[in-house]
Design a protein around this nucleic acid. Structure first.
Lengths: 156, 156
DNA sequence: TTAAGATAGGCAACTACGTTGTCTATATAG
DNA sequence: CTATATAGACAACGTAGTTGCCTATCTTAA
C-alpha cells in the first residue's frame, strides 16, 4: 500500500499553512493598530516574556549572538514595544521588558491566533483539527519553545 | 465545545514540522555528497526546472527582483548546479539550466522527501497522514507552486 | 527603414540582519 | 587583591535583498 502523494508536498503544505496563518495574523494586527510588527517581532517578544530578559539571554534563547539580539532589542525599543532598565543588583546588566503596548500586542496576537484556530476548526471540524495538532506534536520535538527559527531560515 | 489548545500552537507546530523535515533533508543530502546545498537552493532549482529559465523569469517566480535572482544564479553556477547558455533566438537572454549534478540533486531530494513521508506514515499511519495532507491542502491556497517563500520570510 | 519603446542582463550604492573580534565596566572566585 | 568571567557596546565584515541606472537587443509602428 503505497501513496500517490509525492513526499515533497508535505513540507510545502506545512510551510504554506504556516505562512498563511502568519500573513493573516499580521493583516489583522495591522488593522488593529500594529502595522509595524513583523513576524520576527512576535518570536522575540514571546522570548522576552512578561518577566523580562537581557540581551545575552535573549540571544541564547533565539539562537543568535548577543550583538544580534541587542540590535533587535534596539529596533523594538525604538518602536515602543520594549524598554531597557538597569539592574540594581548587577549594574552591568540591562533588563529588557515589554512595555504596556508590547504586552497588549502579545495579547492581541494570542486572541487572533485563537480566532484563526477557530476558523480552522469550523472548516475541518474540531476532531480533525485536534488530530492534526496531535500528529504534528508527535512528529516534532517536544520542546515547542525553540524560538530560534528566524535565524535558522535566514541562514539560508 | 471549546478547545483547550491555544491557537498559537498550530502555527508553531507547522513551522517546527517544516523545519524538522528540511533539516533532515539537508542532513541526508550532505551525507550523499551535497553538503553545500541550502534550503533556498531547493526552491530555486525547483523553480528553474528541467526546461530552464532566465533571470527575469526566475525573479518573477520567486517573487524577488531580477538582480537578486541573478545573484542567486551566480552562486548556484559557482557551486556547479546550474549553467548559463546564450539563447540563439534572442541574444539578450541567457538561459539558465540545471547541470547534471543539479538534476541529480533534485532527484535525490525528491527521493529523500518520499522517505521522510514514509517515516511519517509509519509513525502516524497512512490514513492519518493522508488526512493531515488533505486538511492542509484544504486550508492552503490551491496553487502550491508559490515558491516565493524565501523572500517572504527574509523580509521579516 | 528607421525611430521609439520594451525587455534582458549587469553594475553600483544602499539597507537589513546576521556574524566575529575587541573593548570597557562590573561581578565573582581563589 | 588579583585573576577570570560576564554584560553590553562599537566596529568591520558577509550575505541577500532592494532601487536606480546603463547598455545591448528585440519589437513595433510611422
Amino acid at each position: 500500500m503505497s501513496s500517490d502523494t509525492p513526499g515533497f508536498e508535505l513540507p510545502l503544505r506545512l510551510l504554506l499553512a504556516f505562512r498563511t496563518l502568519i500573513d493573516e495574523l499580521h493583516t489583522e494586527l495591522a488593522r488593529q493598530g500594529y502595522p509595524d510588527l513583523r513576524p520576527n517581532h512576535g518570536f522575540v517578544m514571546q522570548a522576552i516574556g512578561t518577566r523580562g530578559t537581557t540581551a545575552v539571554d535573549l540571544g541564547r534563547t533565539l539562537g543568535v549572538s548577543k550583538q544580534a539580539a541587542g540590535k533587535t532589542i534596539e529596533t523594538l525599543e525604538r518602536a515602543g514595544y520594549v524598554e531597557r532598565t538597569r539592574d540594581d543588583y548587577d549594574t552591568r546588566r540591562k533588563i529588557v521588558r515589554l512595555t504596556p503596548r508590547g504586552v497588549e500586542a502579545l495579547d492581541r496576537s494570542a486572541r487572533i491566533f485563537d480566532e484563526l484556530r477557530a476558523r480552522w476548526a469550523a472548516e475541518l471540524g474540531e476532531d480533525r483539527l485536534r488530530a492534526l495538532e496531535s500528529d504534528l506534536r508527535r512528529m516534532t520535538p517536544a520542546n515547542m519553545w525553540r524560538l530560534d527559527t528566524p535565524g535558522w531560515f535566514a541562514g539560508l
